[in-house]
Amino acid sequence: MNAHRFWNWFLAPGTLWILVLFAAPLLLIFALSFGHVDDFGRGVYGFKLGNYDDVFNSTYLPVLLRSVGYALATMLICLAIGYPVAYYIARFGGRWRYVLLAALVIPFFVNYLVRTYAWVALLADEGLVNNAIVDLGLSDAPVQMINTPWAVIGGLVYGYIIFMILPLYGSIERMDQSVVEAGKDLYGSPLQTFIHVTIPATQAGILAGCVLVFLPSVGDFVSAQLLGGPDTYMVGNLIQDQFFAASNWPFGAALTMIMMLFLSVWMVLYLRRAAKGEAEVL
């Protein structure tokens, strides 16, 4: 008993950290989301539900829906690109597999903001790609690539694809290879075997990858800010504006709470599914 109590003390620093730096600010934001703005533009605590009404009005609702749409597109593109890459490394990487994985991970040590600026340099009207297109005579004028939804989604895919590849790699690498052989042995063509055997056998990795890409993509503001324009505004940008440019902290707080609630629902669904999957394996 005493030994048990002794070990409990090791939780204290972490608990303190979480309470002071995470739980307390979150509570302040929650309280602020019911506040209002005074004559000087400062957030004041109070009680009104109006901030939450504003989140779902016709000005802001499209922004929320667009964020979810971009995040879904990002997730699907990451899956389509990431699965073959993860599959190749796990199955055919051989002694190069850790080198290949490192080659994928190392760029992500560079700050996300800096990497996104690199895309601006590439895709801008006077950027590398457009200069090449014009110089080669493929087009007379620069092709608009920046300030489009696809530039924003492209930035998100680039930013988060590693979170898709790593869990996929893990589940493909762990998969019992004889299961795939069994699929072929039981008259499954290569495509049928992939659909009916490989995908179900790696669904834990697919699920984890999708959640890990979808959740940060919904709240992202860097990609839309640097690669997008007014038409590609996402909820992350909206929140950022409330706290800085527009100076409406209570509304920004309400937006934050709604987004966190939305993401938590997905997170809980995922965790329940993952726990069930684990129980089945055991």
Binding site: G188, S189, A201
Partner: peptide
């Protein structure tokens, strides 16, 4: 190829489809 052969195999690890 194996999927076009009328032979079937019982694998050492059984290789059952867990899903």
């Amino acid at each position: 190829p194996p999927h076009k052969r009328n032979v079937n195999m019982v694998f050492q690890s059984y290789a059952l489809f867990e899903h």
